[in-house]
Design a protein around this nucleic acid. Structure first.
Lengths: 339, 339
DNA sequence: CTTATTTGCGCAATCGCTTGCACAAATTAT
DNA sequence: ATAATTTGTGCAAGCGATTGCGCAAATAAG
C-alpha cells in the first residue's frame, strides 16, 4: 500500500538505515546523500509510518485525556472544552496529539485509563476528574504511569494535580455576601464525592465562622454539577419553606435554574434573593441581571495540566507536583444589594 | 519494561502464536490451554501492546478529528464540543478512540490531516471545516483516505459530508420576520469562505425574493464566526447610519454582541430591533429577552459524521454519502413583535 | 609517511504482535 | 483397520521503522 522506507532505500541504492538517519537528521549522513534521499522521498511521496516508528522508538507523542463519564456528558459543560483548549494549545507546541477516551462508567473510565497506559499508546494521561475516590487514579498510581489529575485528588501528595484555590475563592465569595449584610446564605449543589465542591463548601463555612455566623445545615442542598438542575435544587429549599436571602450555586448553570425558580415564586434577583455561581459561564455576563461568578480559568488549568504532565514524562526522578490556578471573583449585579 | 506476549508464552510453555490466538479468541485453541494462558496472563498482569498490534494488523481503531484553526480557538464555540460529544458517543460503542489534531493554520491543518492519514495512525478522519476551499479536503481526496466533512464542502458530490439544511432553515427564519411585518432585515456575520454562511445567506435572499422584497447589500455585514464580535459588526451598521428593524446574526454569540450594541444606542430588543441568531447557544433561552435561534443539533451531526465515516472505512466499494440533519427554528422573545 | 580519528554508511537485531502454512495427534468416516 | 478430516500448536516471516556495532574510506595528527 504505502511506500515504505525500504522502497526509498532501494530507489536510492542505500540501506534503510540511511533513510532512517536522513529522516532523523543524523549528522553522520553526508549532505550529498541526504539531498538525494530527500528528493527521492518527495518524488515517491513517502511519509513515515508513525505506528512503526512508535513501536521502534517506544514513544508515540500522544497523550491521553480521560474524561469522567462519557465525552457525551462531560462536554456538555463548557468547563471541559475550555480545559481541552488549554491542553491543546500547549500540546501542539510540543508536538503532542491528544487521544480522548470515551467511557461511560467509572469502571470503564478506569479500564480506558489502564489501556491508554499499558497499551503503549499514550505517554501520559490527563485525568479530568475530581472525585474523592477515583478508581482510575489508583490504577494509574499503581502502574506508576505519568499522569496528572485536574481537580484536587484525595491523595494529593502522591499524584500530580492542578486545581483552583477553591477554598479561598469560595471564602471570598461568601464574605462578599456577608459584607453586604446578607445573613441567610444558602449553598446549592454540594456533592461530597467531589473535592471541588467540598473545598468550596469549606471555604463557605470558614467565612461564616470568621464572621460569627452559625452554620445551618438546612441551607445546604446536595446535587450534582451536570445532572441536576438548579431549578430543582432551589425548589427543594422552597418546599421546606426555607427562604434564604442569598444563594451560592456550585455552578453558573445551576444558578440559572435557581434564578428561574426564584422568579417563579414571584421573587426578584437580587432584590429578594441574591445569587452567585461558579465557573463564569460564557453568557453569565450577558444575562439580566448579570451573574456574579468565579472565573476559574479553565484554559490555564489545561495548560498547567499539560505542563506538569510533560515534566513528569520527561523527568528521570519521580516527584509529585501541583499547580494552583487562582480563580477570580467577578462581582456582577446578581449579588449587589439593592435598596 | 512491560510484560510481552513472549513472556507469557514462556511461562505457559507454548508458542507466542498460541497466546496471540487466545487473545483473539481463535476457536482452534483448546479450552484447556485457553484457560491456562488466561490465568497466567492475569497473574503476570499482561496487557497487549496496541502499537505492536496496530502495526501487525494495520488497523488502529483510532479516528482523527481535525479542527479548523487550533483546538485553542475552535473549542471556544459550543458547537465544536457538541460535535465532539456526538462523535464520542458512537465512536465509543464501536470501539474507536478519537485523536484530536492541534493545528493553527490551514496549512498546518492540511499537514496534520495528511499525517493522520498516511502515517497509519488513524483509520479515518472527520474534518470540522466548512471552508469553501479547504486544502485538507483536497489533500485527503487525493489520498483516497476515508474521511467525512462536517459542513457542506464545495465539491459536495465527491466527499462524504454532514450538514444542516442551512438554506431552508434560514429561509424559514427570515420568513418568520417577514410574516410579522419586519421590513428591513439585516444579516450579520457573513463570510464568503464558509459554505454555512453562504447557504444561510442564500436562504435569506430567497425568502426576501419570495416575498417581493428587494435585496439590499447594505444590510449585509461580513464577519467571522469566532473572531469577530457582534458588537463591532452591529456598530458597523450603525456607523453607516443604517438602522434595521430586525437582525439575523450568523451565530448566537454574535447576536449577544448585537444586542449589547443596540442597547448602547438606547434602543430596545425586540421593541426597536428584533434579533435572532443561529446555533442555539446553551444560554440563549435564559437571557432577557430570550433569544430566537436555530437549534442545529450539533450532537446529531457528530453522530452522523461518525456513522458515515465508519461506513466508508468498512466499505469495499467507494461511494460518497451525506447526511442532512434538520435544524429547528426556536422562536423566543427577541423576535416577537411587541405592540 | 605512518598512525589515529573522523566520516559515511551497511548489517542485522529489535520493538511486540499477527497469521499463513505445516504437521502431528486425535477424531471420524469408510 | 486404514484413510480422510478435524483439532491444536508451532515455525517463521512479516508489519515499518530504529539503532548499536562494525568497518572501509577519507581526513587529521604526529
Amino acid at each position: 500500500m504505502g511506500v515504505t522506507i525500504n522502497d526509498i532505500a532501494k530507489a536510492a541504492k542505500v540501506s534503510p538505515s540511511t533513510i532512517s538517519r536522513v529522516i532523523a537528521n543524523n549528522p553522520r549522513i553526508s549532505a550529498a546523500t541526504r539531498e538525494r534521499v530527500l528528493k527521492i522521498m518527495k518524488k515517491m511521496n513517502y511519509h513515515p509510518n508513525y505506528i512503526a516508528r512508535s513501536l521502534a522508538k517506544k514513544s508515540t507523542r500522544i497523550i491521553g485525556l480521560v474524561v469522567p463519564g462519557s465525552t457525551e456528558n462531560s462536554f456538555r459543560h463548557p468547563f471541559f472544552p475550555e480545559i481541552l483548549r488549554g491542553i491543546g494549545s500547549v500540546a501542539y507546541k510540543n508536538g503532542y496529539n491528544i487521544l480522548i477516551s470515551s467511557a461511560n462508567t467509572a469502571a470503564e473510565e478506569k479500564q480506558m485509563a489502564k489501556e491508554f497506559a499499558v497499551g503503549g499508546i499514550t505517554e501520559g494521561i490527563i485525568l479530568m476528574t475530581s472525585m474523592i475516590k477515583d478508581p482510575a487514579v489508583s490504577e494509574l498510581k499503581k502502574l506508576k504511569f505519568p499522569f496528572v489529575v485536574v481537580g484536587r485528588p484525595q491523595d494529593q501528595n502522591e499524584v500530580n494535580w492542578v486545581d483552583n484555590n477553591n477554598f479561598s475563592i469560595s471564602y471570598e465569595l461568601t464574605n462578599h455576601f456577608i459584607a453586604q449584610g446578607y445573613k441567610k446564605i444558602a449553598f446549592l449543589g454540594v456533592s461530597y464525592e467531589y473535592t471541588v465542591t467540598i473545598d468550596r463548601l469549606e471555604g463557605y463555612k470558614k467565612a461564616l465562622e470568621d464572621n460569627g455566623f452559625e452554620f445551618d445545615a438546612d441551607l445546604i442542598v446536595e446535587g450534582k454539577f451536570i445532572d441536576d438542575k438548579g431549578y430543582d435544587l432551589m425548589n427543594k429549599l422552597i418546599e421546606k419553606d426555607i427562604t434564604p436571602d442569598a444563594v451560592i450555586a456550585i455552578d453558573d448553570l445551576i444558578a440559572f435554574g435557581v434564578i428561574a425558580a426564584i422568579r417563579e415564586k414571584g421573587l426578584h434577583v437580587p432584590g429578594d434573593i441574591a445569587v452567585a455561581g461558579f465557573n463564569n459561564a460564557p453568557l453569565s455576563e450577558y444575562m439580566t441581571p448579570s451573574l456574579t461568578s468565579v472565573e476559574v480559568n479553565a484554559f490555564t488549568l489545561g495548560v498547567k495540566a499539560f505542563e506538569l504532565l510533560l515534566a513528569d514524562i520527561e523527568s528521570e526522578h519521580k516527584s509529585f507536583n501541583r499547580a494552583i490556578v487562582p480563580g477570580e471573583l467577578i462581582i456582577r449585579k446578581s449579588s449587589i444589594k439593592t435598596f
